[in-house]
């Protein structure tokens, strides 16, 4: 994915700021990757190279890790992140049908981001709400008993924007940037 203008600077600044807090012990690699992803939303190659430099390890080691673990994204996520639960309970009650519906609506495959970077579609394992399967998580907000029809409703709501802002934009409480930072900064 090509970097947009200004993104380069932003990435370098962010990475520098984060690696400053760590010594060059390899054990810090995963925590650093997690923080960088939290800051930038994904792990661009440029960021991976900078991290490798800071930890004094070959870039391929960083790349290896970033691709090994499911948590890490190599492409920028969409503005709206759609996650479909593919845990056992959700799968057995039709999770795949919901995934198919989103794929059809968004015209992307699972794991991709729309070209306008508005939406990304991912699968997640059980989010612990099997009682209300099938479950989707939209921008960290969990919604249960989803039907293909409801997928259309969700998409409309997201596309039309903020009318129903507190329902699909995630819980303010869980998503405030301070809280995220707070989580990120503790060691």
């Amino acid at each position: 994915m090509e970097l947009l203008e200004g993104e380069r600077e932003e990435i370098l600044n962010k990475v520098n700021e984060i690696v400053k807090g760590y010594d060059d012990n390899r054990e810090n690699l995963i925590p650093i990757l997690q923080k960088v992803q939290m800051g930038i939303g994904y792990l661009p190659l440029l960021a991976q190279e900078k991290i490798a430099e800071a930890l004094n390890i070959p870039p391929v080691d960083v790349y290896g890790l970033a691709t090994f673990y499911n948590q890490f994204r190599l492409n920028p996520p969409g503005k709206h992140q759609v996650q479909v639960c593919m845990g056992t309970a959700c799968h057995m009650i039709g999770g795949q049908i919901i995934m198919d519906s989103f794929e059809r609506r968004l015209e992307i495959e699972e794991g991709e981001t729309t070209s306008d970077r508005e939406f990304s579609l991912e699968r997640v394992a059980c989010v612990g709400c099997c009682a209300i399967a099938p479950v989707v998580v939209i921008n960290d907000f969990v919604e249960g008993k989803v039907s293909p029809l409801r997928v259309d409703g969700i998409m409309l709501q997201l596309q039309e924007g903020k009318e129903d802002s507190n329902s699909l934009e995630g819980e303010a409480e869980d998503k405030s940037p301070e809280e995220k930072n707070e989580r990120g900064n503790q060691e």
Partner: peptide, 11 residues
């Protein structure tokens, strides 16, 4: 307000 409760609307 564990995750399951929140998903169902506990907040």
């Amino acid at each position: 307000t564990a995750t399951c409760g929140k998903a169902a609307g506990a907040i």
